[in-house]
Computed example of a mutant assay.
Amino acid sequence: MSTLPVLNNADMYHHYSDVQFRDGCSVIHEMLKPKRGESILDLGCGTGRLTMQLASLVGASGRVVGVDPDSCRIAVANEQLKKMDDIPVTFQLGSIREVLPLGPFDGIFSNFVFHWFERAERAEMMQQMYDSLKPGGRLTFLLNTNQTQPNVIVRDIFRLTEPNLDEESASGIKMDVPSVWLQHCSDAGFVVELSEVFMRECMEPNLDRLLQFIAASVPNVQCSKLTEDGLQELNSRYKTGNGDEVACSVRLLKVLARKPEEY
């Protein structure tokens, strides 16, 4: 069986989400580009690691609000905030609906969140983000898009642990083609300035470390249910040939959209 440590999901995510942290940092610096004095919303902030990055860029004259529906992750974020010097960050439990009154914002940033939205709620959520921005405000997001390659480790884990469920039902991740997300942006009134689909390889020193990251980022996955045969299959499928090192690829979409200026 897997030797994953016994941690709650919020602590696991805080300790093992380095890959998503690096992805988020690249979107912040290359697409959102926060300026001193701006107000930024981190939608789906998790344990707040990227929220702190945003705060370092807007400075003391700016303001960053992190919101997340997971009370355990918000608790971790607030504990980290206590260790910091006075910085312009507040964390709030909830969703875009709860932070609408705190706007308008200069920018909204969201990292690996939108693919968790229920499809029936996406249009409303996108419109609420639009309404939360100042004229000229930016929306940047990164998410998992449809996975077409045959070897997808999350899919394999659910095949081995939940064989009677399809991947979406088991994981809760609702992937779609990039054009669906771009249409949601346009329908809400955004002008899409940049969109890019790319493959990102996640490389870890061994299978256990990769499973730790997956268990942290996909709460429904139960890596502890993997049998020895299942672990051996994953090892053989995802080993790189360099010792115990394993790697998997994911297909991602990143978007920069803007609310038009008022004339």
Rank of each mutant, 00 (worst) to 15 (best):
C45N: 02
G46Q: 09
T47G: 08
L50H: 02
T51L: 11
Q53P: 02
L54K: 06
L54T: 09
A55C: 13
S56G: 01
V58Y: 10
G59R: 12
A60D: 15
A60V: 12
A60W: 11
S61F: 01
S61K: 06
G62P: 07
V64H: 01
V64D: 02
V65C: 02
V65H: 00
G66C: 05
G66M: 03
D68Q: 02
D70N: 08
D70I: 00
R73Q: 14
R73C: 05
R73F: 13
I74D: 14
V76I: 01
A77M: 04
A77I: 02
Q80W: 02
L81V: 11
K82D: 13
K82S: 08
K83Y: 05
M84A: 11
D86L: 01
I87L: 09
V89M: 03
V89I: 11
V99I: 01
L100Q: 06
P101Y: 13
P101I: 09
L102C: 05
G103Q: 01
F105C: 05
F105I: 02
G107E: 11
I108W: 05
F109T: 06
S110P: 07
W116N: 08
F117N: 05
F117W: 05
F117P: 00
E118F: 02
E118D: 11
E118H: 04
E118Q: 10
R122T: 07
E124I: 12
E124R: 08
M125P: 01
M126S: 01
M126A: 10
M126Y: 15
Q127R: 10
Y130N: 05
Y130F: 15
S132H: 09
S132I: 00
K134G: 14
K134R: 15
P135I: 11
R138E: 03
R138I: 00
R138G: 08
L139I: 12
T140D: 12
L143I: 08
N144P: 04
N144T: 04
T145E: 06
T148F: 03
T148Y: 10
P150G: 05
P150Y: 12
V152T: 10
V152I: 12
V152Q: 14
I153V: 08
R155K: 10
F158M: 03
F158W: 13
P163Y: 12
N164I: 03
D166R: 03
D166W: 01
E168Q: 12
E168I: 06
E168P: 08
A170L: 07
G172I: 00
I173K: 06
K174H: 03
M175F: 14
D176M: 15
D176K: 13
D176Y: 09
V177N: 13
V177T: 13
P178R: 00
S179T: 06
L182Q: 04
Q183W: 12
S186E: 15
A188K: 10
F190I: 03
V192A: 03
E193S: 01
E193V: 01
E193G: 04
